[in-house]
Write a protein that binds this DNA or RNA. Structure first.
Lengths: 205, 205
DNA sequence: CGTTAGTTTGAATGGCTTCAATCCATGTGG
DNA sequence: CCACATGGATTGAAGCCATTCAAACTAACG
């Protein structure tokens, strides 16, 4: 899943807005008035259950678009993981443009299809073992970081846990296992250094 | 998730083909030449892992369209759950039509978006408890059965288990729990009768 | 410093899986 | 029509992986 920034809206001007760490961008069930594109920073989308559990649907990084659900209302809430700059596009204007320009419509469709693919991958993650989930997450994040063997994670252990359907403790324990098996190094809690990609890959069957 | 049959292709003729129980419709990684619509019967899409585990991505029933992944190749395999009639639409022809007729393109987009929504719901299922998963599955199947308090499931316990990320045994045990709590009745293994919808709903927090 | 949020580690519990056996329905051949 | 084989479903008992509860440790920031 390459996170190439397909931007069907380069013909449109958008308004940029800044959000602090944990700032709410939109809430679940709010009317979906805009499409969003991350200029810098990171965003998480999530749902809260009745019993307080939180499930994170996706992490979006610099260049990614999000909020393209087709319903009237947002299916998830969206928050800034860190200080984040987001560009807003009015949905109604996007639709008008899509109706006029055929390739814009096509690229929006492609964007939805890419999102579909991403969610499918996420679904497949959630039936794996804890180790497989964490490894897949790390490989995904490494893949989304341009040409590097290290990542500075924007998100906390809790965020990772809620994305993978695990607990913080399990994520933490799994990471130390990976350190002990020399697959990765953890110079600091948020910094992941890849030591042995092959070993890491093999933990994903 | 209403399974209303949005059919953007009513302007196209398709070829109908019959498949026996467990008949393969297409395989993972095969080139995606067609779009499919179920005339009668049921289809499952799935992936097989290296260690033999199988994850079912979706069940499609009469009237549903499937196989609309945007990549060159299918991301999942597809099999008939029971004897099934499927209508084939050539993807290239569909694309030509979409390029010409704006509303066709829009409806294909909407179809992709609906699929995205469905997969998101499925994702949320997989982080719940066994009971919640089974209950959600039953409610989903009941919802997709037009106006009735009973369903004749097309799929086996194994299919259900592989859809919910559980084992057959756990699915079976959970169903008997639901029978014992008078939420449902099981006149036969494949027939589910709803006895207490409220009780069932409450098991989904 | 002192406080707080985040991370790691430990010990015990529990829910689902695993392994195994039994039950049930269907179909086939004698 | 019964005997038997077969695939699917259910039930039981033991084991294990992730969770839960709890505490210690670390880093950032006033």
């Amino acid at each position: 899943m390459p996170s190439v920034a397909i931007d069907p809206l380069n013909k449109m001007k958008g308004v940029t807005m800044s959000f602090p760490r944990n700032g709410e961008i939109y809430g679940e069930d709010e009317p979906a008035e805009y499409l969003y594109k991350i200029v810098s920073g990171a965003v998480r989308t999530y749902k809260i259950y009745g019993d307080g559990r939180r499930q994170i649907g996706a992490f979006y990084l610099s260049g990614d678009m999000f909020g393209l659900e087709m319903g009237e209302a947002h299916a998830f809430s969206a928050e800034a993981v860190t200080r984040t700059k987001v560009m807003f596009f009015k949905r109604s204007a996007v639709m008008v443009l899509a109706a006029q320009e055929n390739d814009v419509a096509g690229r929006l469709w492609a964007l939805t299809a890419r999102e579909l693919f991403r969610v499918q991958e996420h679904t497949l993650l959630l039936v794996q073992t804890a180790q497989e989930r964490v490894v897949s997450f790390l490989l995904e994040m490494l893949a989304r970081t341009p040409a590097s063997n290290a990542v500075d994670l924007a998100m906390s252990r809790r965020d990772i846990a809620d994305y993978l359907g695990l607990t913080v403790e399990t994520v933490s324990r799994t990471l130390t296992q990976l350190v002990n098996s020399a697959a990765i190094a953890l110079p600091s809690a948020r910094r992941i250094v890849l030591r042995n990609r092959t070993a890491l890959r093999q933990l994903n069957s």
